[in-house]
């Protein structure tokens, strides 16, 4: 028996929006500690990992660890029916073949009840081993989204260079090239708290496919800022922290030169 309630349906809405372009079918893993989801995109270049802690829910109950396979595009359609400020309750029996979603309006005057068929996904679980990252960059989430969108105009591979002095995003394509550099600054503080924060132990330069960074940036509404963690020869970690409820993490394999030829 699973039953958990979120104060605002919009949280799950945004989460699904952040995932559905990257992953189509995924398993929600419920345990007493909360809910997690982990999946690779269809070309196996990136991996996303969602963690929602039980403490972030208004109410959370899970008697038995279970894995519920869900078609994310279908879930997104169902969630469209919820108002952002509705409360959302997820329910499932033991050995379920459907998951129920209940939307209740703030005034308690409207209750919507949906049953969605589950998929039986036969898959194995992956984990990225914990890494001590040599450099970490925190950027306002919408700033990051803007950078990625801008750079995509020019090319499809982005070189990210993190140094103490700043972080540079560079693209070279048929049309031309572009460089965007962000400096750590108190300057941004004037506008209210959002600023670039750079913590570089060792300068790093890595190359990534912009296509995926763009998918990751779909998580922007979930958090104020995004943290990029990098080290040589390990995947880039892009993390959106959603306060007390949990976080969404994306891992992206760096491009290796010989792959560029393709």
């Amino acid at each position: 028996m699973i039953e958990c309630r979120l104060a605002e349906a919009s949280v799950l809405k945004k989460i699904v929006e952040a995932l559905k372009d990257l992953v189509t079918d995924a398993a929600f893993e419920f345990s007493e500690n909360g809910l997690q989801l982990q999946a690779m995109d269809s070309s196996h270049v990136s991996l996303c990992y969602l963690q929602l802690l039980s403490t972030g829910f208004e109410h959370f109950r899970c008697d038995k660890e279970s894995s519920l396979g869900v078609s994310l595009p279908n879930l997104a359609k169902v969630l469209k029916c919820a108002n952002n400020d509705d409360t959302l309750t997820l329910k499932a029996k033991d050995e379920p073949d459907v998951i129920s979603l209940v939307f209740e309006s703030k005034k308690q005057d409207c209750i919507k009840d949906f049953d969605m068929k589950l998929m039986d996904l036969e898959q194995e679980q992956l984990a990225i081993p914990d890494t001590e990252y040599k450099s970490k960059v925190t950027i306002p989430a919408d700033e990051f989204r803007r950078i990625i969108a801008d750079l995509q105009v020019l090319g499809d591979t982005c070189k990210i260079t993190a140094e103490k002095a700043g972080v540079r995003f560079a693209v070279e394509g048929d049309v031309g090239k572009a460089n965007i550099t962000l400096k750590p600054g108190e300057a941004a503080d004037e506008e209210g708290g959002k600023s670039v924060n750079i913590d570089v132990e060792e300068a790093v330069e890595l190359r990534f496919a912009l296509r995926y960074l763009n998918y990751f940036a779909k998580a922007t509404p979930l958090a104020e800022s995004v943290e990029l963690s990098m080290s040589k020869d390990v995947p880039l970690l892009v993390e959106y922290k959603m306060g007390e409820i949990g976080a969404i993490q994306y891992y992206l394999a760096p491009k290796i030169d010989e792959e560029d030829e393709e």
Partner: peptide, 9 residues
């Protein structure tokens, strides 16, 4: 791809 860096759980 990413599987190069991941371990099976």
């Amino acid at each position: 791809g990413i599987a190069r860096f991941a371990v099976k759980k």
